[in-house]
């Protein structure tokens, strides 16, 4: 009998997942976003663990569908996809490289670590404009186009921009 199930290699799985873009911010992958928490092989079965960004984020269903499609595209069919809540997702998991990608895409990246003093005290942050670097910016709306963003305006170049909230 021919075994159609391909031999699973963890490295390869990570590569596949790194190629799955965030459906709302396509310049970063779901791995860079921190949504993929773990990839394991248990009893020859692949187990992918993900965590939601915000509880009601509608992109999560989309992300599950995209992960399944990416795996099945590579003929990987013996897998489970599990969602965990703990530890809760945080923007602290984003690397500097990821933050730079957000910035070049026109989204101001999270300005701080959630453990930083200003962040803990809920003080308003100085957000640099992703277009002109000016820190002379003002929050227009605490809630933005998606749960993870706020809307800001730059007082120097006058462009509005999204800010990826420190969460």
């Amino acid at each position: 009998m021919v075994d159609v199930q391909k031999q699973i290699n963890i490295e390869e799985i990570w590569e596949i997942l790194e190629a799955v873009p965030d459906p709302e911010i396509p310049v970063i992958s779901i791995v860079e976003l921190g949504v993929v928490r773990d990839v394991k092989i248990i009893n020859e079965q692949l187990k992918v663990t993900i965590t939601p960004t915000y509880t009601g984020c509608p992109a999560m269903d989309m992300i599950s569908v995209m992960i399944k499609a990416a795996l099945e595209d590579r003929k990987i069919e013996n897998y489970t996809l599990e969602t965990v809540l703990s530890p809760p997702w945080t923007t602290d998991w984003m690397s500097d490289e990821t933050k730079n990608k957000l910035k070049s895409y026109g989204i101001a990246p999270p300005a701080e670590n959630t453990q930083d003093k200003n962040s803990l005290l809920g003080k308003p942050l100085q957000i640099a404009c992703p277009q002109c670097e000016s820190k002379n910016t003002v929050m227009q709306s605490q809630f933005g186009s998606t749960p993870c963003k706020s809307l800001y305006k730059c007082n120097d170049c006058l462009e509005p921009f999204d800010y990826f909230k420190c969460h």
């Binding site: 915000y54 509880t55 809630f143 933005g144």
Partner: peptide
């Protein structure tokens, strides 16, 4: 947005 969070919860 708040409605969406509450619905998710």
């Amino acid at each position: 947005n708040i409605a969406l969070d509450l619905l998710g919860q």
